[in-house]
Design a protein around this nucleic acid. Sequence first.
DNA 1: AATGAATGAGACTTCATTCAT
DNA 2: GATGAATGAAGTCTCATTCAT
Lengths: 193, 193, 193, 193
Amino acid sequence: MFASERREHLVRLAAELFAEKGYQATTVRNIADEAGILSGSLYHHFDSKESIVDEILSAFFDELTATNQAALERGGDPRTILAALVSNCFGTLVPHRAAIMVMQNDWNYLRQFDRFDYLTRSEEKAERMWMGQISKGQEIGLFRDDIDARLTYRMIRDTIWVAVRWFRPGGRLDAQGLADHYIKVLFDGIAVH
Amino acid sequence: MFASERREHLVRLAAELFAEKGYQATTVRNIADEAGILSGSLYHHFDSKESIVDEILSAFFDELTATNQAALERGGDPRTILAALVSNCFGTLVPHRAAIMVMQNDWNYLRQFDRFDYLTRSEEKAERMWMGQISKGQEIGLFRDDIDARLTYRMIRDTIWVAVRWFRPGGRLDAQGLADHYIKVLFDGIAVH
Amino acid sequence: MFASERREHLVRLAAELFAEKGYQATTVRNIADEAGILSGSLYHHFDSKESIVDEILSAFFDELTATNQAALERGGDPRTILAALVSNCFGTLVPHRAAIMVMQNDWNYLRQFDRFDYLTRSEEKAERMWMGQISKGQEIGLFRDDIDARLTYRMIRDTIWVAVRWFRPGGRLDAQGLADHYIKVLFDGIAVH
Amino acid sequence: MFASERREHLVRLAAELFAEKGYQATTVRNIADEAGILSGSLYHHFDSKESIVDEILSAFFDELTATNQAALERGGDPRTILAALVSNCFGTLVPHRAAIMVMQNDWNYLRQFDRFDYLTRSEEKAERMWMGQISKGQEIGLFRDDIDARLTYRMIRDTIWVAVRWFRPGGRLDAQGLADHYIKVLFDGIAVH
DNA sequence: AATGAATGAGACTTCATTCAT
DNA sequence: GATGAATGAAGTCTCATTCAT
């Protein structure tokens, strides 16, 4: 794919709007207005509104898959690996804010289109990866075995991504700080022992 | 308040559709089709599509506010109260599934309308309530004081509500089981001590 | 026609609304609301919205035709008769305010329906009557003969009826005072001689 | 201001329809049909039906305000100025026929919308201007002082504008002829002295 | 007499998309 | 690359009217 600068600029504008107003509520005219052109002119760069959001989402998924794969390859015990995965996820919060926002708010809508099937498959693969680490941690006595691996994975996953709704860089904690806080609570709970 | 049986039936149909397809993607015609009437006929019962979703959301908020208020009034230490609040929330997952689904998926869109301001205010009040308990727990040495009360509240909140996306009653765990699992992880973490 | 009291009351309510908002902009529901019943219930009294306005308009036309006929029968010179006709018209301003308002604002719309043909015929008859008096007055030297009878008639007619838009009883002049003022200007102009 | 030729053409078509059938009774589909396009396509040029009629009305008001202002600036005694104002008004009858027709028939409806407030203000300004001339004429002995300035103004105003309902260019008198006839009657009445 | 529910036609408007220039 | 005009489908909503109860 030939990614001209102009095209990338348009994608960024669109991403910002999708994040703020949602995919459905953002019109191609909104995007064109932001770019200072007419809505029809967008179709010189993209063949549909869907293909714009597709570009945003797949960039995000590609990067996350790659960094997670790298973490796995670096090896370590499940606790180390889990902490690395959590860090990776929080690490995308800023650079891929719009994609995550779209995932959180518009996924339910977008998944009905065949072209986004790859996202479902990607998520299923991720689930297997995370659950594998949790189960392994339970087997070797690192994690409590009175918790459910699938349930725990979902809680971790949802808690991370949903943070995109309120996380703003520049506040007290940056994304890494958030990750650390989260890892602390996740492993040891909020109670004093 | 304007509760005719017919009206309530229509609200339930609409709620199901909003939950499945999202508020924006559900057309008034979808709702009418489901009810076996013409779309215009809906306006005999409601004055707008917004007022339907409003009814769904406010029923949910009213109930949750009431049960949480009751939990506070029953008293107890912060750990007990927090556990009760968590249980209350998970307890709405089945009866108010649609409302929670709409909140998760369409809130970003709906909040732009003045008529839903009350939801924002309601959430702010809830935040103060939860954070109050967390802080109090920290003061009296029940909860670790190296965690951030606001951050922790948000994680709890998001983790609970986002569960509506995958929770299906009739599975291995019911809502109360989920709550118990969650409370366990929340207080003690997933690590073995 | 059997005019029950209830029916007459409803007509009056409708008339008020037609006058204030216009015939098209007034919905049968507006009328029903005003009467404290449901819109469908109006159809026990009238078979259509048109028939309500018809009743309002024909009551007005019947009365005006009758009083004008009486004035003609009383006889007198054209100036006397013209003054009497003008007085008659202004005299309907209060009791038939709504009908006149509808005539001024909605006539253009209503005339497309066959059922209101009688109004056009009635107006044509009136035109002949007025022009007859003006022409006769010119013939016998009462009125200037450098004015156009038809044009003059139309100016008189329009000036009278359009007054319904701003005339409010209870102000400085009552309808008869208005008539007198108008007759004065009509016969002698505003210039000092 | 946004005057493309296409747009102006559409405005003219709409104006004709508004004049013939009334604003409310004219549908955007009527206008589009007349233009040979689909109704939705109108929204490429205008953002609402209201904005079309707004354009029609404001063009009329702007021109009338300008020519009346010019007449005032040319100076002269009140009789001269009044005659000029009357001429100006009649002079708009042909070029702004549609706008005046809308004013006469649909004003009652349109004035409920905030966007047309400027018309009310414009009319109030005009009233002050006309009444000023009439009063001045009375003070310097040109006009009878047993007539009411406001009442007289309203009669003049209404008589002029209402002529739009029956005036057709190409008849015996053109607009200027009508104006002359009217001025004659206005100043000297219809009676022989 | 009135209710409550619904019809059916049609209103204004939105919007992704196309295409000649 | 972009404009300007248009399409076509669909969306929310309105409203006079009907009718069983």
